[in-house]
Design a protein around this nucleic acid. Structure first.
Lengths: 196, 196
DNA sequence: GGACGAAGTTAGTGAACGCTAACCTCGCTC
DNA sequence: GAGCGAGGTTAGCGTTCACTAACTTCGTCC
């Protein structure tokens, strides 16, 4: 369900790597990548800072794994949805629901994904950028199938705008989860169909 | 037009303070507050790092001034717009246009405003938070005037969501400015009227 | 029960960085 | 033209922080 490079290794509980990534995501979301020390991340999982280097090559590598994980998860889920046969409107709705669900379940990852691209090394940044571009293209495809009069640049801009709308979940703590999911879905679709 | 604590002092050209703030905003938007050194900011305006302390008490103070400036500008502009007499729909449209214009003219400030709250000192953070809350209330007021069936929590969430939509300008480089302004306005209003 | 590897510890190193101190150089004012 | 304040400079201090080295602990396998 949640993106993870190494799945929970057979038994139930998450691997140490995943524990660390989850804790780090929460901290990065709160204080920013550069605002979190290696000791803070360690403390959050009950070990000292340097022990993290048994699991990750560097602090940058943690961020890299986090961001590529998210990007791959979104692209995979999005691609799967536009491959389904059926009504174009249903597919677009499915895409919105998929992204809304992710944003609701992982607000911390959303925040990190939006803010900390700049802190990534060159290699990882290129990779994440490419995945993001491909995800946008998934949306552009779905959008133009339902609103054929929309040209590509407008569709791309509309996609970015709707990401912004849905990704507002970290600032949106006022409503119970289900209500917020429904509201965001309706707002997103309302925006997209208004794109003309 | 652009928020500035000390206006351009009579003659045309911006004060040194404002030059520095503008350069710093650009850098903070690109690399994050913690990712920018005092020497980088200085270099961007052609002086050395320590010279900045002739104009600002600290690096934190620069960020503080930047963020309170933006927040005050938005609140003032928003408040002015909902005070106007006239059709509720027109007022909401005016509010959307106002925010869209700001986001288009100052994408760097938008980015900093969203990302760097955590780096602010306690005092400034409280102040900015209060201004932001008040600005949200302006939107809630306007929204509930046009969509009376919307309760307050839903209106607040819708406002946050639409901020996310409009504040996507930093990721939105594909369209000429005028087209983007029109698109974002239409998307935002489409979303808001879909809130039911 | 000895060997070994995985996962932890503490101590320490080197670089980056915010900020201060001390000094310089103008342009104004009287 | 002496005095002075505004706005620069360079050198350096102290802290923070990512990362490494050296050592410990412990479960597993033969």
């Amino acid at each position: 369900m949640i993106p993870s490079a190494a799945p929970p290794s057979g038994d139930g509980k998450p691997s140490r790597r995943d524990q660390i990534l989850a804790a780090a995501a929460e901290l990065f979301a709160q204080h920013g990548f550069r605002g979190v020390g290696i000791d803070d991340i360690g403390a959050a999982v009950g070990i000292t800072g340097p022990a993290l280097y048994r699991h990750f090559r560097s602090k940058d590598a943690m961020l890299g794994e986090m961001l590529t994980g998210i990007s791959e998860y979104l692209l995979a889920g999005g691609t799967e949805r536009i491959r389904r046969v059926g009504d174009a409107d249903d597919i677009l709705t499915g895409l919105v629901r998929f992204h809304v669900d992710f944003a609701l379940q992982q607000p911390a990852l959303i925040t990190v994904h939006e803010r900390s691209l700049a802190s990534l090394g060159d290699e990882d940044r290129r990779r994440v950028r490419r995945l993001q571009r491909q995800y946008v293209e998934v949306w552009v495809t779905a959008l133009r199938a339902t609103v054929p009069r929309l040209d590509e640049p407008h569709a791309r801009s509309a996609a970015h705008a709707v990401f912004g709308l849905i990704n507002s979940t970290p600032h949106n703590r006022h409503l119970p989860g289900d209500d917020l999911a429904e509201l965001l879905t309706r707002l997103a679709l309302g925006a997209l169909y208004a794109a003309k």
